[in-house]
C-alpha cells in the first residue's frame, strides 16, 4: 500500500508526505551559497553567470559570500598556483559542512594550458575533494550553470544516513601545504626526505 493512502481523504489536500532526505536535500540545494572567490579568467565568467543575463539567482544562489564561514560551495574558478594553494586549502577548511567544491575550467581541473608551468598545480583535486568538474577555457556561463545543476542533482541524491559530515570517522580538515623550495605537504616529510637525501653523494647518506 502506498504511503500516501494512509492520509485520510479529507487531509490529502493539506498534508504532504515526504522523506527526510528529500526535504533536507531540497532545502539545501535551493539555497546553495557560493563563495565570492575568484582566481583567474574563469572568475569573470562566474561573475557574468551571476549577472543579469544568466542570473544565478534563479537557482537561489545569488548570495555570494566573501567569508568562507557562510558558504556552502567553493567554485575554484581559475588557475591554481602553488603560491595560492595553501590559502585555498585553508579557506576550504574554514567552510562549514556540508561543503562542496566545483572545479571550473581546464586549469582548476588539470592545470589547463599552463600545466607545464613551474608555479602551477595540476588540478585542485590533488588537494581538495572535487564534486563537479566543468570543462572549458573558460567555460561559458551556460556550462557553469549546467555544472551547478549537476551539483544540485548530486545534493538531491545524498542521504542523511550516509553523508560524511555526520560520521565520526570523517577527518576534520585537510593538511595545509607549505611553501619551501617547492610546495610540500608536511605529512609527507619522511617520504620527501627519503628521496632528497638519496640524491646526495654517498658520504652524506652515511651521515644521515
Amino acid at each position: 500500500m502506498a504511503i500516501e493512502n494512509q492520509v485520510p481523504e479529507e487531509l490529502q489536500k493539506n498534508v504532504f508526505l515526504t522523506s527526510v532526505d528529500f526535504l533536507y536535500n531540497w532545502s539545501r540545494k535551493n539555497s546553495l551559497w557560493p563563495m565570492l572567490f575568484g582566481l583567474a579568467c574563469c572568475a569573470i565568467e562566474m561573475i557574468c553567470t551571476a549577472a543579469g543575463r544568466y542570473d544565478l539567482a534563479r537557482f537561489g544562489m545569488e548570495v555570494m559570500r566573501p567569508s568562507p564561514r557562510q558558504c556552502d560551495l567553493m567554485i575554484v574558478s581559475g588557475t591554481v598556483t602553488k603560491k595560492m594553494v595553501p590559502t585555498i586549502v585553508r579557506l576550504y577548511n574554514q567552510m562549514a559542512e556540508p561543503r562542496y567544491v566545483l572545479s571550473m575550467g581546464a586549469c582548476a581541473t588539470g592545470g589547463g594550458p599552463f600545466k607545464e608551468g613551474y608555479n602551477v598545480v595540476s588540478g585542485i583535486d590533488k588537494f581538495l575533494p572535487v564534486d563537479v568538474y566543468v570543462p572549458g577555457c573558460p567555460p561559458t556561463p551556460e556550462a557553469l550553470l549546467y555544472g551547478i545543476l549537476k551539483l544540485h542533482e548530486k545534493i538531491q541524491n545524498q542521504s542523511v544516513r550516509t553523508v560524511p559530515w555526520y560520521r565520526k570517522d570523517t577527518p576534520k580538515g585537510i593538511t595545509v601545504p607549505e611553501l619551501g623550495p617547492d610546495i610540500f605537504l608536511p605529512d609527507r616529510a619522511a617520504e620527501i626526505r627519503q628521496i632528497t637525501m638519496k640524491q646526495k653523494p654517498a658520504t652524506a647518506v652515511e651521515e644521515s
Binding site: 592545470g111 607545464e116 613551474y118 598545480v121 595540476s122 617547492d182 610540500f184 608536511p186 632528497t196
Partner: peptide, 15 residues
C-alpha cells in the same frame, strides 16, 4: 619522479 609538478633540491630536509 614525484608524479607531480614538484621539484626539491638535493639534500633538502623538510624537518
Amino acid at each position: 619522479p614525484w608524479g607531480d609538478n614538484i621539484k626539491y633540491p638535493e639534500g633538502w630536509d623538510p624537518d
